[in-house]
Amino acid sequence: MPAEAADQDPGRREVRKVARVVLLDPQDRVLLLHGHEPDDPSDHWWFTPGGGLEGDETHEQAALRELVEETGITEVELGPVLWRRSCSFPFAGRRWDQDEWYFLARTAQTATAATALTELERRSVAGSRWWTCGELTEAHETVYPTKLAGLLRRLLDEGPPATPEVLDTEIV
């Protein structure tokens, strides 16, 4: 389909640009948020902090803003982009198509307090938890991205990749 026709296709969904943060504490634990469908807390999963870019924001600016809004953590050293992922999933009655950039970040600030959640986030985020790589490896819960335990292990063993790694597309 030509680009002009694709732009006019009413069934085509816009891809949301997203910045996510792989936040590590001094013990190399990663912070994950616990989310669920707004009307069904039994449909739940864990995910990295982050969200969509707003206005002319850069990915870096969005990563830091989202981290503050979702965790209250402000003392952060933002590192490089580790991974990029395309994903598509149903949530809150609609389908979300996203291009996600995962930034490495480090902090010594481990107390969390969501300071500026959106209305939808207030209905669907149940808290946060610091996870060790071993705990992630043993977890029977759903975690996004789905191979986070192995990715984290490689990151801790080898350091950040020289260029962002493109992860497998995830369609749920």
Rank of each mutant, 00 (worst) to 15 (best):
Q98A: 15
R94F: 00
F91E: 01
P80I: 01
D99W: 05
T71P: 04
I73V: 05
T74W: 08
E75P: 05
R94T: 01
G79P: 04
E77G: 08
G72H: 03
R85H: 10
F91D: 01
E100W: 06
V76Q: 05
F89W: 14
W83C: 08
G72D: 05
I73W: 02
E100G: 12
F91W: 08
R84M: 07
G93F: 00
A92P: 01
Q98K: 15
V81E: 02
G79E: 08
S88Q: 15
S88F: 14
G72K: 06
P90V: 07
W96A: 09
D97A: 13
W101K: 15
R84T: 13
V81R: 03
W101H: 15
G72F: 03
F89E: 07
V81D: 02
F91C: 06
E75S: 07
E75D: 09
R85Q: 15
E100S: 13
G93C: 04
E75C: 07
C87V: 13
Q98G: 13
T71F: 08
W96Y: 08
D99G: 05
E77R: 15
D97Y: 04
S88I: 15
T74P: 13
C87P: 08
F89H: 06
C87L: 14
G79V: 00
W101E: 14
W83F: 11
A92W: 00
V81G: 06
C87G: 13
F89K: 03
I73K: 02
V81T: 09
R94H: 02
V76E: 03
G93N: 01
E77D: 15
R84H: 05
W83H: 11
D99Y: 04
I73C: 00
G93W: 00
G72A: 06
A92H: 00
L78K: 08
E75Q: 05
W101R: 15
E100Y: 02
L82D: 07
D99F: 07
T74I: 12
R85A: 11
G79K: 11
S86G: 15
F91H: 07
T74Q: 14
Q98D: 13
P80A: 06
I73E: 02
S86M: 12
W101T: 07
L82P: 10
I73Y: 06
S88N: 15
E100N: 12
P90S: 04
F91P: 10
L82R: 02
G93K: 00
V81S: 05
G79T: 08
S86F: 10
T71G: 05
D97P: 02
G72T: 11
G79R: 07
V81N: 06
E77A: 12
D97T: 06
